[in-house]
Design a binder for these strands. Sequence first.
RNA 1: GCUGAAGUGGUGGAAUUGGUAGACACGUUGGACUUAAAAUCCAAUGGCCAUUAUGGCCGUGCGGGUUCAAGUCCCGCCUUCAGUACCA
Length: 954
Amino acid sequence: MCCNTTKFAPYFKEILVMRYEFNKIEEKWQKYWSDHQTFKTENNSDKPKYYVLDMFPYPSGAGLHVGHPLGYIASDIYARYKRHKGFNVLHPQGYDSFGLPAEQYAIQTGQHPAVTTEANIKTYRRQLDQIGFSFDWSREVRTSDPKYYKWTQWIFIQLFESWYNYNSDKAEEIVSLVKIFEAEGNATINAACDDDIEIFTAEEWKDYSSEQQEEILLKYRLTYLAETEVNWCPALGTVLANDEIINGVSERGGHSVIRKKMTQWSMRISAYAERLLQGLETIDWTDSLKESQRNWIGKSVGASVTFNVKDYDAKIDVFTTRPDTIFGVSFMTLAPEHELVSKITTQEQKAEVKAYVEATAKRSERDRMADVKTISGVFTGVYAEHPFTKVPVPIWIGDYVLASYGTGAVMAVPCGDQRDYDFAKHFNIPIPNIFDGVDISEEAFASKDNVKIGNSDFLDGLNYKKATKRAIYELEQIGQGQGKTNYRLRDAVFSRQRYWGEPFPVYYKNGLPQMIDAKHLPLTLPEVEKYLPTETGEPPLGNAKVWAWDSLKAEVVSNELIDNENVFPLELNTMPGWAGSSQYFNRYMDPHNDEKIFSKDSINYWQQVDLYIGGSEHATGHLLYSRFWQKFMFDKGYVLHDEFAKKLINQGMILGTSAFVYRNKNTNKFYSKGLIDGKDVQLIHADVSFINSSDELDIDAFKNWRPDFKDAEFILEDGVYKVGRDVEKMSKSKYNVVNPDEICEQYGADSLRLYEMFLGPLEQYKPWNTAGITGVHSFLKKLWKLYVGQDGLNVNDAEASKDNLKTLHKTIKKVEEDIENFSFNTSVSTFMIAVNELTAQKCTSKDILEPLLILISPYAPHIAEELWERLGNSDSISTAPFPKFDESHLVESSKNYPISFNGKMRFTLELPLDMSKEEIEKTVMAYKKTQEQLQGRTPKKVIVVPGKIVNIVG
RNA sequence: GCUGAAGUGGUGGAAUUGGUAGACACGUUGGACUUAAAAUCCAAUGGCCAUUAUGGCCGUGCGGGUUCAAGUCCCGCCUUCAGUACCA
């Protein structure tokens, strides 16, 4: 480590300037970039555009650790590379600054979330700046900024004012729906809507009161109010997210949690299910991510079948993917929550059914899903009628049927479905076989292939495909079913009972929601005294005293003025975390526009994100919702592409390398790793900052760390204490967190950037080990020495040698290919090789060393800028054109051929590249070592691939 | 169970179209410089065997196969990680 000579700087300036003082250099250039607004991007340019985006961070109180910037470094390299390649690059950054942690902190401390958020953002910004990113900070957005969330609220209103027309397959204005109602009622409409819609005529529509009309329209809007189940914790008086519940009780306090129905806003994302699925074909995202989204959307093709219930005026609709097996139905199963359960049960069965329904209600959905093995159910005593045979089919209730999928009821075909089979066996229900020549005595036959249907009337002898088609046809003929496609994707609940989120631009008149006119936005978050739910169980905004809408003055007024004539109560829920992140990528294009979410010009210019980098944990959240909103914005004509990101890369996680010490279970003796065999020891995490590069513990630091280790005794091996190491997720509790601030201070940002890339492929999970950073750090020192010697600059106008040119051009070629393939780790090795070679060649030629700097500058921008300036350039290196690769410097006249015998390389032989196949063979066979290898044998065959290899067989 | 990704030295990893496996680093060992340490530089470093300057055998999770040639292609397994799941 260089000693810190800062305080002597004025006296030793001439000497110091010759050393690689990364701290000073990095500070200097970060200031330069900021002062000169080097990375500010204009919305028009003669250059082609390129949009590189990172997933913006949630600014947590803990700050960044070295795992966080991985994706940002990769995208920054790419953005800088594209600038060298002559693109006008948009590379913005911002903060996803609404969220739960700030609110929980507020509950504990009373600090306003805005205050802690602001402080956290400051830390983030400082940490990001010190890594030397080329972000255009003039475009920063924060989701919690009213100027930004004005537009989140605006999109909400747009969704409210829209319905989905399956005929045109797009979202349309709600007024167009009203026109259709007025002209012909709703019978002909093919829309995404609630499933409890009643058919009405144009006349009936006109006779409805305006409230009735409003209620009906709400069932068609793309965002709508609905009763949905939430995890309600009575003790905390609040709703919990799934991950706040551990083993059925609240994470905070361990209180019980029940399912409760609440009226909440929902987003009709299901309307877009098919387009979200099809759109995946058009984008360059990873297969695993697309597959996750496909699973999540969960398309299945089959039929809906209606069963009439005997002796009741009731019908049961089921969805099945196997209408071809309809003659195999021997019972039906309803989910315990199914609405018919309470209506149809017989007197004798009533008590048993009631007990079963209550028992399952107590179990959480998670419990039910986890416990797959136990078969339970109860008979209702009632029968349905088979649509074709008219045979009575017993109706059962079973918790293996989920109320939330399909219709919450299944037609059970035990011979063709293992769950139905198990249920039938368990309750002694008959298992009729409808497959020709298949043995079903042990298990169900679930395959669709290589089988013909039997015992099935008109389906006899048909295969899966034909039988399915025929069954659907026959169902349609008798009016008891039709072909249907079902999606697992459900509408997304959009209300949160939280404080720190976007307020809805909604007030309530006679219990019906009204939108605040967009021109009055933003509707800003009110002040509250407490961030907890109210005593009556209302969301935190229920604590606000000034939270009513005066529709005449168009402003927020005191709750006391509510008269439900002109002043109305405002919505108390706030929007979920994904609201603010679902269009931010478009807002960056024109972030300060107060008139529009973004101008036509800006979207016309930037179009869509060209490269998006972020974590795969957002596969079915942010990345699905954003695609949904983008498609909606596309339908409304606001954006030009119905997919927001052309290409997406998931960066892997950087894991921590934890360190362990071994304490004897009963004493305070710590044994070195090599001495623990046969001893009863306990593993204790030691902070990774106490460990040197040889896995040896700094015993004094460890003893001073925690009082209970103060008097510990250490049993050493070879005079040192060796720790054990293991790779785990980077986390405070494992004491393996490495802070980028310390790395930047000790080794510099350029070392950090290089090392993060050098660790391995971007997409891969890989362990961090600070010890390894000395490799890239000494590379930077070698690079520096190549340019700057003891007495000054080493670079001159000397003519480049052939070897110099060869090294440079093979480096240009490799680095360019690597960046285009996002293979950043291999270009770091390429730089090392280049610098090693040029150093060995004693290269001083500016013609070589100047372009080399441009190659390195995306990776290590500070040192590149500094040396670039020292070479006499006055502009930033960031826009210097990327060096052109010239093949002619790599042309060789000879090749060192590997000569192998039966596929095994034995020696190499230098031969001219223009030598013919025959000549090569002759030369090789005549060579002394060849004859030694053969030991008198005559080869059966000699394979010669000119320019590649010689293989002698025999 | 299903889906996706991946298994290469002590460690991170490289080998982009089948053609010299282990590039580049870390670590380790030895050496130079130094009062010493740090820094820097040089050399060795997949395993085993032999050792005379030289060489031989094995080796990319396991078992087969295709090929003159397989880390790479094909078939069958095993393991790890991630996502998802009574989805009818």
